[in-house]
Design a protein around this nucleic acid. Structure first.
Length: 591
RNA sequence: GCCGACCUAGCUCAGCUGGCAGAGCAACUGACUUGUAAUCAGUAGGUCAUCGGUUCGAUUCCGAUGGUCGGCUCCA
């Protein structure tokens, strides 16, 4: 078994790893043709890959679980043993385990190999393990999936069984509940329930339709985004969706991004491509005239809709689509301005994300690849230092991904953590040493000669579609008032209050609240239930009493706030609008 | 794209080994004038994803195609 590095000290991971061995034991007992390959520990569990052409069914998983139970009950001892390399190869060859042989052969020859044995099952593994199988108290097999041998699609497709294990039954139950919770929050489910968006196969996979309520939310997001960008010194651009082949040749996309681009269309004997990125267009705006150093920096932003060919199997709701809108921007600046610009953009990114209710982040700095890169190493170094300084000035923790940058420049990526602890990559701030060169971007410096500007490419929300999906899952559809497509609904008890309800509704409309009116001849319980299911933050209930006293009765999600004056309600609304974040607890309660 | 599972009414799902297609909710119609999560009754709604095969007969069995879902690879 190839082990994950660095888990040697974590008792839970050791236990999960042992559980993977027990599973492999059970599988090979029940399905002798299945050849074990590798089975590492992963976040929240483990998997083990088998070469087994028939594939495992859900019933097989149950049978494997039962067999595992027997093995655990037998309380076999985990024992390690050293074996000379040749002998180990022979051992696995004799057993008919070609994958283990391949693993050993791919490992550096240090003379001996470590094997672990429990009962009559022996596996290549450097350990460590729990001492007895009975130490495994709470486990569950979750799913089967195909996976390529060594993660390479040119290799054979193996059968991967995912499982999880915890120290106690309670922890396992909690984890399974969390998986259920994630299912409940699925933006595809909520998107349908709340009528926010759809993806229609008649149109095509990965091409989203924004329904009125989803579109309203998108408009709120875009409007806020634009306002913040103007405040931060950006200008807006609008650029076309297609461009000539020559443009994409110059940018290099036809060379290195071709497989993600849609086939060209021919117009007047000229090939045009649908844009997979906005950069060349922004560059052409720059090249529309000459620039003095006095005009820099240019900060140009665009909600740019791009189209990328994604393989059918990877499409996923709004999270992974074929047509999406990037909240893109390009900063073109002088060497001297670079430091300040990077600091500003990082600060701006974090604030933007905070505005949408995200409070914890993971930041990554990716540096120059060893071999494939463009530009001068010296420029790379300066850029990396600028990124690093910005991160340090911001006082945020970050990880360095040495050599993980794109070939055209180093970058900072920001991941956000959602209400149930999942991480999503949104913002990316990337230097580009490639395009300014390819398009020969220049500015005239104080010395009267031409200089090459720096270019930084950045997206904060990433893709609007994806970010919207993340918001849906983060809030589980219980959007804070400023984002909610419908903020309040006016509910009448009987026909007597229709006029009054109409009046309240109109007044709120005039104050720009997003409000609906429900004067159907239905019971109040039904109206409340429907508003509740639509996750409308406020319900304004009007009956005989309210009409007589000229008050309203307010319900906020699950809480009956009692009766109050219209003006008091407005104060409450104002306060609610300011609250752009939900504390984690209130989100959990809400869902 | 690859591996596997799935596709039945607008939605969620029943339909055992082949014999005229079902429920709940939603929709529509009518009655009920209603106080904080579902009032009652009735009506309508389906080429069982598509195409082909096996069969006296296919929603059911087999094959192909399309799509969805879970993964892999990739990624905003």
């Amino acid at each position: 078994m190839v082990c994950r590095q660095g888990f040697e000290n974590d008792p839970v991971e050791i236990m999960r790893h042992s559980c993977a061995h027990i599973m492999a034991d059970a599988v090979t007992k029940l399905f002798p043709e299945a050849k074990p390959t590798i089975g590492p520990v992963i976040e929240d569990g483990f998997f083990y890959d088998f070469d087994y052409s028939k594939g495992f069914t859900p019933e097989d998983l149950e049978a494997i679980e039962v067999e595992m139970k027997k093995i655990i009950k037998s309380n076999a001892k985990f024992e390690s043993m050293e074996m000379p390399r040749d002998e180990a190869i022979k051992f696995f060859k004799d057993r008919g385990d070609p994958y283990k042989v391949e693993i050993i052969e791919s490992l550096p020859d240090v003379g001996t190999m470590t094997l672990y044995k429990h009962g009559d099952f022996t596996d290549l593994c450097k350990g460590p393990h729990v001492n007895y199988t009975k130490k495994i108290k709470a486990y569950k097999l979750l799913s089967v999936a195909g996976a390529y041998w060594r993660g390479d699609e040119k290799n054979a497709m193996l059968q991967r069984i995912y499982g999880t294990a915890f120290t106690t039954k309670e922890e396992l139950a909690e984890h399974l509940e969390k998986l259920e919770e994630a299912k409940k929050r699925d933006h595809r489910r909520i998107g349908k329930d709340l009528d926010l968006f759809s993806i229609n196969e008649a149109i095509g996979g990965g091409l989203a339709l924004w329904h009125p309520k989803g579109a309203r939310m998108r408009d709120i997001i875009e409007t806020f985004w634009k306002k913040e960008h103007f405040k931060a010194g950006y200008e807006l651009l609008y650029t076309p969706h297609i461009g000539k082949a020559h443009l994409w040749e110059t940018s290099g996309h036809l060379g290195f991004y071709n497989e993600n681009m849609y086939a060209p269309m021919e117009i007047d004997n000229m090939e045009y491509y649908l844009k997979p990125m906005n950069c060349p267009f922004h560059i052409m705006v720059y090249k529309a005239h000459q620039h003095s150093y006095r005009e820099l920096p240019c900060r140009w932003a665009e909600m740019g809709t791009v189209y990328r060919y994604e393989r059918s199997g990877v499409l996923h709701g709004l999270m992974r689509v074929r047509g999406f809108t990037q909240d893109d921007a390009h900063i073109i600046c002088t060497k001297e301005q670079m430091d300040d610009e990077i600091s500003r953009v990082l600060k701006f990114s974090l604030n933007m994300l905070r505005s949408f209710g995200f409070e914890s982040f993971e930041l990554f700095l990716s540096t120059k690849p060893e071999e494939k890169y463009v530009g001068e190493p010296e420029d790379w170094k300066k850029a990396e230092e600028a990124l690093k300084r910005a991160l340090e000035n911001e006082g945020v923790a970050y990880e360095v991904d040495e050599g993980g940058g794109a070939f055209y420049g180093p970058k900072i990526d920001i991941k956000i953590e959602d209400a149930i602890g999942r991480k999503w990559q949104c913002s990316t701030i990337q230097f580009d040493f490639n395009l300014p060169e390819r398009f020969d971007l220049t500015y005239v410096g104080a010395d009267g000669s031409k200089h090459r500007p720096y270019m930084v490419h950045r997206a904060l929300l990433g893709s609007l579609e994806r970010f919207f999906g993340i918001l849906v899952e983060h809030y589980a559809g219980h959007f804070p008032m400023w984002l909610a497509p419908i903020q309040a609904t006016v509910l009448s008890l009987s026909e007597e209050q229709h006029e009054y309800a109409q009046e309240i509704y109109q007044q709120l409309k005039e104050k720009d609240y997003r409000v609906t009116l429900d004067v159907r001849h239905e019971k109040i319980g039904l109206k409340i239930r429907e508003a509740q299911l639509q996750k409308i933050p406020f319900m304004i209930v009007l009956g005989k009493k309210e009409l007589e006293q000229k008050t309203i009765s307010l319900r906020h999600r699950n809480d009956d706030l009692g009766s109050m004056s219209f003006d008091d309600m407005l104060v409450l609304f104002e306060k609610s609008l300011e609250q752009k974040t939900f504390s984690k607890d209130s989100i959990k309660q809400a869902s």
